[in-house]
């Protein structure tokens, strides 16, 4: 048996016989109206979290920003809807699709994947990483474009040089992959190790930077 909420959602389609015609121009109208709404919401400062998605060699990437800066980059294996639902809980549910607010970020990703950009120059919001995880992330930019470092080498840069396993965790839960280059951290035996975007994505990013 359906819940009441489900029933009311299903009742939208199909409409009662004879009333279907009213839905004829709905899709186009709603696209236009939501565009205007997003602009007005921005102008009134009501968008706490803005997002857009971009195509990339490692698949569609979700880019999410707060007023502070880029707060989350997500691979499609993470499920973009799931990530947004999590952010609604952890940051704010005032989340809107607002591509314009992420224009600069999208451009830098495009340049990065076109080999014309080696470091990202964007305001970042690190609120999703705290404590030692945050400390690890702040050191990752020290691994230069095109090179790699082992988990233990990264640990050596931190206040807990023996916390090799914790460095692995910090990298695995990096909220800003690609921008904060956790893909450059590999196992000490030279194998690439795990990656939140999948091992193929890590291999692709490393080979992209090797060119």
């Amino acid at each position: 048996m359906m819940t009441r909420a489900e029933r009311s959602m299903h009742a939208l389609q199909p409409l009662n016989a004879g009333l279907e015609a009213v839905a004829a121009d709905e899709a186009a109208t709603l696209v236009r109206l939501s565009g205007v709404l997003r602009g007005a919401a921005q102008a009134h400062g009501l968008v706490d979290v803005a997002y857009r998605s971009i195509d990339s060699p490692v698949g569609p990437l979700l880019l999410v920003a707060t007023e502070v800066g880029l707060v989350r980059v997500a691979f499609s294996v993470e499920g973009h809807d799931t990530v947004l639902a999590e952010l609604a809980e952890s940051i704010s549910p005032r989340i809107l699709h607002a591509p314009a607010r992420l224009d600069a970020a999208a451009r830098e990703f495009e340049e990065y994947f076109a080999h014309t950009r080696h470091t990202f120059d964007l305001p970042l919001d690190f609120r999703l990483a705290s404590g030692f995880r945050y400390e690890v992330l702040t050191h990752l930019h020290e691994i230069e474009y095109g090179s790699t470092a082992s988990y233990s080498a990264v640990a050596a840069l931190t206040s807990s040089p023996r916390a090799v396993r914790a460095v692995g965790t910090a990298c695995a839960r990096n909220p800003l992959p690609v921008v904060v280059p956790c893909h450059r951290v590999i196992r000490s035996d030279g194998s690439q190790g795990a990656y939140l975007g999948g091992p193929e994505a890590k291999a692709l990013l490393l080979s992209l930077e090797a060119v």
Partner: peptide, 14 residues
């Protein structure tokens, strides 16, 4: 009550 607002627009806009 905590869904991303964008979901409300796509579910209930019509």
């Amino acid at each position: 009550a905590k869904l991303p607002f964008e979901v409300l627009i796509s579910r209930h806009g019509a």
